[in-house]
Design a protein around this nucleic acid. Sequence first.
RNA 1: GUGAGCGUGGCCAAGUCGGUUAAGGCGCCAGGUUGUGGCCCUGGAGAUCGAGGGUUCGAAUCCCUUCGCUCACCCCA
Length: 424
Amino acid sequence: MEFQAPRGTTDVLPNDQRYWRYVENTASQVAESFGYRRIDTPVFEDTNLYIRSIGDSTDIVEKETYTFSDRGGDSLTLRPEGTASVCRAYMQHGMHNMPQPVRLFYLCPNFRYERPQAGRFRAFHQFGIEAFGESDPYIDAEVIEVSWRFLTSVGIDDISLRINSIGDSNCRPKYVDALQTYYQNYSQSLCPDCVRRLETNPLRLLDCKMESCQPVIQSAPKSTEYLCPPCNAHWVQLQEYLETTGIGYEIDNTLVRGLDYYSRTVYEITPPTERRTNVIAGGGRYDGLLEQLGGPTTPGIGFGMGIERVIENIRRLEINIASNPKLSIMFAHIGEGAKKEAISLSSQIRRLGKEAFVGPSRGLRSQMRYASHMNSSHVIIIGDDELSTGLYTLRDLSKGDQTEITADGILNFVKTHDIGQKVD
RNA sequence: GUGAGCGUGGCCAAGUCGGUUAAGGCGCCAGGUUGUGGCCCUGGAGAUCGAGGGUUCGAAUCCCUUCGCUCACCCCA
């Protein structure tokens, strides 16, 4: 085989489509039930949008973007995450003039040049929401609740929520200082990665997985102990509101996130397994981001959720996805005249909005077998006898019985048997 | 970028201390039922054994190279 799907990409075959429909439909319903409205943005944006938002020293921007020049010489980048685009759209369309908060959700593909592995792809899909213009922590709890309700609605309920607050531009620098000072004392016992992190990204010291670094992490200063009064009030209220929604949570002071724009609230939702790649959803607050992108000072918060990872968990839990059987008619035909009648009648049925198609030009036995494998609900058999009498054979594949029926009778049958009819 | 495992018809796969025509199952096609599916029976098509090179009288099997897939690290959804 000369061609295959590029590394890190997958084909969603017909048999798997039901998972995607199920997830996308549930996501839309849940988000809309909270008052969120769908937004779609381009798959590529000005490269600088991502540099300015995600951060030019993050792994995503440093080595994972798909960046190219178009024929006019502009540098464009395939969307690596959803928040930046939505922020850009919020500013571009003057949504700060709309009643605040503005609640938006999206379902879209994202691209990151990474080595694929379990639950990680180069082309992947996210369901996400963003809420702009509200700094009160009730909206933090709401955003968390949307992701939680979605996952439980879809049937994944063995999940756990971890939250943390990393402060804002006022108090976080003091915490980072304290963290660095603390780590200086252990510099000789740290893993090589952590030695590097100490300089480049001190917050990430906290989620090192190396066994040898765990004791150091355990007794490290906690960000929540360094919060300034406003951040602390926000943090305390968030927990109260979360408790009001009845969602169980765990405070994880080692939880930090890989994008530079987060402030105050950060959170992750994981299934019971230990592997970090199993993080299904992650998000947080980004109060300085819009201003950083040249917009008005506007608070914002949101999450991103990996659809492939959601589906992976649906499969793991063997969640039953109901799919309505529907009316689907195949025309089996014997002879050229019968074939033309099959083409004509199936076309008329389709114009009524129902599924119908012509059987393959093979023997009747083979056509019947095809109908069966195509999950047709009914077969109409047309041969010389039927053409001369005008009475066709209508066979119900689920019941296994059949009757005589006229052409008009067929059309009437189709009109009165609607989609969703139980056929198996 | 680093490390490990694996690549045999569309899919799952036996064979891998080299030896005549590369098992089997699923799926596909056909026949059994001269016009009737899902079960069953019979037959058929379909593989340059990932690719290239080497060793050998002889290579799916041994050696080298290369590509691909998977998993893990980094990082993330």
